[in-house]
Design a protein around this nucleic acid. Structure first.
Lengths: 230, 230
DNA sequence: CTATAACAATAGTATTACTATCATTTTAGT
DNA sequence: ACTAAAATGATAGTAATACTATTGTTATAG
């Protein structure tokens, strides 16, 4: 598989971490640390110790912890969109395409050799546990103006376009897709921590597969009700 | 309308804030302050100034800011469940009941005279902006063991029961309902701050009404597909 | 081979999230 | 009305956090 680099919006960082060894170390180790400690207990101090550098050096790459989080989440959505693009390329049937998209959105991530140092499965856990915190802030409008959420919005738009291919008259393609993208990780969280909120059983891969079926069914039934009433 | 008191799980507080004037002031003012400042900028110091008391006094009611947030969110879900119970009482048709439930879940809240000092519309904004932070933490399992999330779980269970009345064979009642409860506030947030993620237009009441239609349609089509294929 | 960028080392600050102690006020029961 | 207990206020203190600033050292690119 080819070695790739996802181009990130330059407002996400002060200095592109993909350009230097230290920068890449910041990314890789912050993924591991946030996954371990949770965002609240994660600090630049701890990260600087983990990468055997200093707080000051990290601040040259990222304005603060929030921006670093937003960067990681944005990277994840970019990566996911890239894979959906790749896997639906040359597929003609819109229904087949939505099946592929929902599969990629809901599947459990494993190491991807295209990005050798990034632990995609840890990053997916971060998305599950922390991604909502990236936008649930008072600065959301400023951040949005800087384009920090372009990754998620672009992914949503792409999948919504497939939805409209299936049924151009469906009224809520973007709402439906953003709901599904959110549910894709929320249901995993619920089934692990608040199991009565979900019907999926948190055992090995099963929960991911049940979630895929649940969400694909929800999408298809919403978009294409079979009774012709719409 | 009768004056009511929602009984809260005693693990949510050190001393029941509903018992004293100071306690009620803590609740009322914290709702206003968190709504204004956002959870991150909200501190017990600022709250103590707002209520003309001291940090120490607040700490006698709540262990910390996190517990206070969880308390407020739990109060909201309890209140919502109570209203759903009330409004669906004596309604026979399950479809009518789900319509009422979705309406209450998605409607914009106004002052409710039963709880004179609580600003329910500010509290709803807190639920929209901050509620996910109540459980997206490393302590979620401990908090859950203490029953801190009973309000949300109980609400989900109640609505899931209505779903099963409509179709006892539907496989994902809890997943569907928790997804809807989440989407109910997420879509409001999106339409205001990240409008490309939603099809609802953020203007006055409209967004709430569009959201209701979107979610009710989603529920009904998911639960009761008309083609008899299931 | 030097100029410049990158990084390390260190120090310092305001704020936060508490804990502790003791004094004062309020309230409840007799 | 009196007293014990509970509730609250006032004040102080601490470790950690989220930065900013400065200066010195090491890489590396032209």
């Amino acid at each position: 598989m080819a070695l790739l680099r996802l181009e990130m919006n330059s407002n996400l960082f002060l200095k592109d971490p993909q350009d230097t060894d230290l920068g890449r170390k910041i990314i890789d180790e912050s993924i591991k640390l946030i996954d371990d400690l949770g965002l609240e207990a994660f600090t630049f101090k701890k990260l600087s110790i983990a990468i055997e550098s200093t707080e000051a050096s990290i601040y040259r790459y990222f304005e603060n912890k929030h921006k670093l989080l937003v960067y990681l989440i944005a990277w994840y959505w970019n990566w996911l969109e890239y894979r959906i693009e790749f896997m639906t390329n040359n597929v003609i049937s819109a229904e087949e395409k939505i099946g592929i998209a929902v599969e990629l959105v809901t599947e459990k991530n494993e190491y991807d050799n295209s990005f050798p140092t990034i632990d995609e499965s840890a990053l997916q856990r971060i998305v599950i546990n922390e991604s909502d915190k990236a936008y649930l802030t008072k600065q959301v409008d400023d951040d949005n103006k800087e384009g920090l959420f372009r990754g998620f919005k672009s992914l949503c738009k792409r999948i919504a376009a497939i939805v409209l291919e299936i049924n151009p008259d469906y009224e809520y393609p973007h709402s439906l897709v953003s709901t599904v993208l959110q549910a894709a990780h929320q249901q995993i969280f619920f089934s692990e921590h608040l199991p009565s909120l979900s019907n999926h059983k948190f055992e090995k891969q099963q929960v991911f597969e049940q979630n895929r079926k649940f969400l694909l069914e929800m999408v298809l039934r919403s978009v294409k009700p079979k009774n012709g009433k719409q």
